[in-house]
Write a protein that binds this DNA or RNA. Structure first.
Lengths: 177, 177
DNA sequence: GCAAATTAATGATTTATTCAAG
DNA sequence: CTTGAATAAATCATTAATTTGC
């Protein structure tokens, strides 16, 4: 995919005959680069004058119109926002409010993770392969916990891997949580 | 790749004496399988609760901590994205060439767009960031101007871009406008 | 066959962005 | 305008693969 930009003499050309196909603006990488940099620099809603100047400058790299610049900022701004929102939504799927509390060192009890089906079923059909290794993992001195991972995720003491005795059969998509 | 699954009775154990060697999490094949399946199922940024549950379940197969799950998704997501982008970039490596081409074409008005420094300098250095699109920008001859964009932006006739005769060297942040 | 040496993967940290409260 | 929340990008670091000389 991605249109090789090279060939495809007739990409969409949905119109067919006409040729030229001036469907819509197709930004050059440089153009996108510059626009992105401007965006990162803080520009969000350029004024008419700014748009014109930007457009003029970018025309150096290829065909472009002022409106393209205008729309680009509109879309980019909206999509960035949307992207962020999507995360929330995804996590909220089944309630699971964005706890985002970042692992407050929960679990400590040898909890039995009830059902929790992460996968349809065929998930287990694999426990052959790795079984050879099945590391013993008996080591235990790894006190570790000094977890200094500062960037979020303050999962203090972390998981008390007590190896639950129950082969998971999760199904994440449907019933998880 | 893919674990020779053959021998390797005693893989690392390099620590020699003490053993244990709790350097970093070393996922089991089953663990990787499940994580990968979850990812394929669409999970990208598991919530705190999800992470904990997943971690608990995976502890069945061996030592694991919540943060490992967290990091796994972060890394996997990032690297998948990166892998995808790498393709674009490879295809678009022409960037500069394209620029040059346009340089020739664009000067229709005889103008020579001299400098044009939208950014300090390193602006052109990296180009891949916004390559989500990275369209090719193919042919152009679109007359367009029939601009029917309804949402404000009444920039009239568009394209006054008669190439300003002065390298903008915008710095947006500081001196732009 | 087996390790030391080298390279490829990938786990764990750090740094930059972005949006949106305050 | 400043700051907090939440990543994603970039980078660092360690482990597993693979190569290579014996």
């Amino acid at each position: 995919m991605d249109e090789g930009m090279s060939g495809f003499g007739l990409k969409p050309s949905r119109g067919g005959s006409g040729g030229a196909k001036c469907g819509r603006w197709n930004p050059t990488n440089e153009q996108v680069k510059v626009l992105t940099d401007l965006f990162r620099s803080g520009l969000r809603t350029p004024s008419t004058d700014q748009i014109q100047k930007i457009s003029s400058q970018l025309s150096f790299y290829g065909k472009i119109e002022s409106k393209n610049v205008f729309y680009w900022f509109q879309n980019h701004k909206a999509r960035e926002r949307q992207k962020r929102r999507r995360v929330y939504v995804e996590n909220d799927q089944n309630d699971l409010n964005i706890a985002k509390q970042h692992f407050a060192d929960v679990t400590e009890s040898g909890r039995v993770i009830e059902t929790l089906q992460l996968f349809p079923v065929n998930s287990l059909a694999f426990s052959e392969q790795a079984s050879e290794k099945a590391r013993g993992y008996t080591n235990d001195e790894c006190k570790e916990n000094t977890s200094p991972y500062t960037t979020m995720y303050t999962c203090g003491t972390e998981m008390e891997n007590h190896y639950h005795h129950r082969h998971p059969s999760l199904d994440l998509r449907l019933s998880f949580m």
